[in-house]
């Protein structure tokens, strides 16, 4: 088939068009209308829900202040009062970033937010925490002040004992600067992106003990059956046929013990 009819069903050309396959895959990552929905399930009614977004906002401030800090090199902030101010905003936004992340984490733990095939959402969140930890640590190493001298000469022992220090030399300020401003923030950014995607894919976890109000699907089923009837216009949150159900990629471990 050299030409495709625009009126043909969207999946018709998937077999011979990589572009269509990719675009179909991207569209199916999140149920239709769930990338940026303007409505949330009625149980999303607590201040604890704002801390994920607050953490994301703090990350934006962290990255912005860090970028400004890079403009003058790594030592300018010692002698320039504006530089010192930017360094202060970088420090305090990082403290806010970790504080909101940990409060978000506490909330999600107490809600057992990994239920309903949301295990990977928790796992990517935990990975984002550890990635942020490493990124923050390299930030302390490149302050080019007494604190950095002490932390690097202390931290080397742990890393050397683990065999990591042979390649990741915390006393090499040039190496640490590059890790801090390139690879590590990139890793954190990708993990955070995946985490957000999974959050939108699965939706916000329902309350512990809540029964499904629609259709009363059996909780015993590992994967709720695809909806037989087409979604109505008054239910914009329902996934249309063909879109990924929020249950795709079920892992056996996620089903009850």
């Amino acid at each position: 088939m050299s030409r495709t009819d625009p009126a043909a069903p969207p999946r018709a050309g998937n077999h011979d068009s990589w572009t269509r396959a990719l675009s179909g895959w991207i569209e199916g990552l999140v149920p239709k209308g769930q990338w940026l929905p303007d409505r949330q399930p009625a149980y999303v009614a607590s201040w604890i829900y704002v801390f994920g977004v607050a953490c994301l906002a703090a990350l934006v401030v962290v990255i912005a202040s860090g970028l400004v800090l890079t403009f003058g090199g790594i030592t300018w902030w010692h002698t320039n009062s504006f530089g010192h101010f930017v360094n202060s905003t970088h420090l305090w936004s990082v403290e806010l970033f970790f504080a909101t992340m940990v409060i978000h984490l506490w909330g999600k733990f107490f809600m057992a937010a990994w239920r309903g095939h949301r295990g990977m959402t928790w796992a990517t969140g935990a990975l984002a925490f550890f990635g942020s930890l490493g990124t923050a640590f390299t930030g302390y190493l490149i302050q080019t002040n007494f604190d950095a001298q002490w932390i690097s000469t202390q931290a080397k022992d742990g890393l050397n004992a683990a065999g990591v220090g042979a390649y990741f030399n915390v006393m090499n300020v040039g190496q640490m600067v590059l890790w801090h401003v390139s690879f590590l923030p990139l890793v954190v950014g990708v993990i955070v992106g995946l985490h957000l995607l999974l959050v939108r894919r699965r939706g916000v976890v329902p309350p512990i003990g809540a029964e499904s109000p629609v259709g009363a699907e059996s909780p015993v089923a590992a994967e709720p059956p695809a909806r037989a009837q087409p979604p109505t216009a008054s239910a914009p949150d329902a996934a249309p046929p063909g879109a990924a159900r929020p249950t795709a990629g079920v892992s056996a471990q996620e089903v009850g013990s």
């Binding site: 949330q40 399930p41 977004v53 329902a238």
Partner: peptide
């Protein structure tokens, strides 16, 4: 069902919704 409810959750998209400006 009680035993499973700790690890299982119904589909969040099946619940009534409220306006929420992300």
């Amino acid at each position: 069902a009680t035993r499973r409810s700790a690890t299982w959750a119904p589909d969040s998209h099946d619940f009534p919704t409220r306006r929420y400006d992300l």
